[in-house]
């Protein structure tokens, strides 16, 4: 039984990582080697003399070419990565700030219909983006927000509020009320108690919430491709737009770019691993 268990896990470990390993190898290839009918999986310093050999000449050319502007795009990969970073960071800050205040309100005060409001907040996450995008598009056209960073920042902020409120409510519920009550007795106002006593205690929760908001804006595609197809294009929409490229898919650059794009997410996954389950289930499972 022990061997069977280890075998199952080892096998899936290969399945889970192989595409990413292949991505790493592809990013070191020339385009011809990525679409060669003879799989190339051994990077070497020199080009092999036999074209059917499994080895290929490793090059960092694809990473250098990330600064090339492809046909049909207005910016290089780095420009789009900049848009992703800007939109991701600002919308995350806004979601966490709004979400923390809202969660504090629901955590510490008795509000009429609180439970219904909370479930309303959660259910906004179930809407398929495509079912609400046209009205948002019309609204953004009138406000001149289509194809701007601000437009997507506002949208992602709202989109991530359900996550931020639910996660933060879980974290705030775990902070004993006695802390604030002591502060109130010491003459702090409610606001001061929140800022000076509760927020420092909620630091970890806010960091975890921020990571999950950032990841979901970072990966979002439906709104990005429909609202920002021609300006402030984020990386997922940019990559998708390369499809049907007349020069043929630039696979090495796609692999290199995808690797650069997912690297921070892998790092964040490691950082928040103890709170992964909590984050993925909107705080409904606390472990």
């Amino acid at each position: 039984m022990k061997w069977l268990r280890w075998f199952v896990v080892a096998l899936y470990l290969v399945v889970a990582t192989a595409p990413l390993v292949w991505m790493g190898l592809s990013s070191l290839k020339e385009r011809a080697d990525t679409i060669s009918p003879h799989a190339k999986f051994l990077p070497t310093a020199e080009a092999p003399s036999d074209p059917t050999s499994p080895s290929f000449e490793a090059t960092f050319e694809a990473y250098r070419e990330l600064s090339v502007v492809h046909a049909g795009a207005q910016q290089s990969f780095w420009g789009h990565l900049g848009s992703s970073v800007l939109i991701g960071l600002v919308s995350t800050l806004a979601s966490v700030a709004l979400g923390t205040c809202c969660a504090y309100g629901f955590s510490r005060f008795r509000l009429p219909g609180a439970k219904d409001w909370l479930f309303f907040v959660l259910s906004t996450r179930f809407l398929p983006p495509l079912a609400v995008v046209v009205p948002v598009l019309i609204m953004y056209r009138t406000l001149d927000l289509q194809g701007t960073h601000v437009g997507l920042i506002v949208l992602y902020t709202v989109f991530n509020l359900s996550l931020a409120v639910w996660l933060m409510k879980g974290f705030l519920d775990e902070i004993p009320r006695a802390f604030e009550e002591a502060a109130l007795v010491d003459g702090y106002t409610r606001g001061q108690a929140f800022v000076r006593v509760v927020l420092p205690e909620a630091r970890t929760g806010m960091a975890v919430t921020a990571v999950f908001c950032l990841i979901s804006s970072w990966n979002e595609y439906g709104f990005a491709m429909t609202l920002n197809s021609s300006g402030a294009v984020t990386v997922p929409a940019y990559f998708a737009g390369l499809q049907g490229n007349i020069e043929g898919m630039p696979w090495p650059q796609i692999a290199a770019g995808a690797l650069v794009f997912v690297a921070p997410i892998v790092l964040f996954t490691v950082l928040v691993r103890e709170n992964l389950l909590r984050g993925m289930t909107f705080g409904t499972i606390k472990q």
Binding site: A16, W218, A240
Partner: peptide, 15 residues
């Protein structure tokens, strides 16, 4: 093992 679920479906799908 958890890494794949954190990645962008659009980018990974393309790849």
């Amino acid at each position: 093992l958890l890494v794949p679920m954190m990645l962008s479906p659009a980018v990974m799908g393309l790849y």
